[in-house]
């Protein structure tokens, strides 16, 4: 593998980490959706590049799923939901942007410190790929805990899952990657449909999870 090949792979995977940071501080719904679409495009490019490097044509299917499903269909569907629910103005966050970003940087540091020594036996290429993937995963978690609203939590979950697909495509010759990415897509599709359906049934007055917390059994 030439240095240029691995540089391109690093560029693509690294851009996913950067986009994860961008996701963290978006405070407008539509901007959040746009950044997420970019995240999915970066994933699609990254997986396609891996498919080319590893001569693994089945990974192109994964890349295509990322591009069409996560890059186009899901953002469009979520945009419709956001418009219908009238929640496009702002996003309520639990923690303010500054500490969140600092915490995010700490998480990226953590994943590099954890991954690089552990994967000494692997090629340098797999090592950095895994470190990037773990960073994306942890930043996705961070986004899920700092957001209250259901739509942005789903976006956090999807960015987390993008990190997983990145890791799986980087692990050479790993079977079932396509099946796993299809499985995740089904999961996400169900949940997006779920949010949409419940709104139609007018049971959800709000998708703010704090309001839903009121209905805990303990408050009886």
């Amino acid at each position: 593998m030439s240095p240029l090949d691995s540089d391109i792979a690093h560029l693509l995977a690294g851009s996913m980490v950067l986009l994860s940071f961008l996701l963290l501080y978006q405070d407008r719904m539509f901007a959040l959706l746009n950044v997420f679409a970019l995240h999915a495009y970066a994933l699609a490019c990254s997986v396609a590049w891996q498919a080319y490097l590893q001569r693994a044509p089945h990974l192109f299917i994964t890349a295509l799923i990322a591009l069409l499903f996560k890059g186009v269909i899901i953002p469009l569907a979520l945009r419709r939901i956001v418009v219908r629910l009238g929640i496009h103005r702002s996003i309520e966050t639990v923690v303010s942007v500054g500490p969140t970003m600092l915490f995010g940087i700490a998480l990226v540091g953590l994943s590099i410190v954890v991954m690089l020594p552990v994967t000494q036996a692997e090629g340098p290429f797999v090592r950095e790929d895994l470190a990037f993937a773990l960073s994306v995963l942890l930043l996705g978690f961070l986004m899920m805990v700092t957001r209250r609203n259901a739509v942005s939590q789903v976006i956090g979950f999807m960015s987390l899952e993008n990190g997983l697909v990145l890791a799986a495509s980087g692990a050479r010759g790993m079977p079932l990657v396509v099946e796993i990415s299809v499985g995740f897509s089904v999961l996400i599709a169900f949940i997006v449909i779920g949010i949409f359906l419940f709104r139609i049934r007018e049971r959800f007055d709000t998708v703010d999870l704090q309001a839903l917390d009121m209905s805990r059994g303990e408050a009886l």
Binding site: L137, F141, M144, L164, L187, F198, F204, L209, L212, S215
Partner: peptide
């Protein structure tokens, strides 16, 4: 489809998927 049931399902979905994601890693 009561509020409580939806909240429980949502919580289960979020925590369950996070768990599942960790397990995949």
């Amino acid at each position: 489809r009561t509020n409580a049931a939806l909240e429980a399902a949502w919580k289960y979905f979020i925590l369950g998927s996070v768990g599942i994601a960790l397990a995949l890693f």
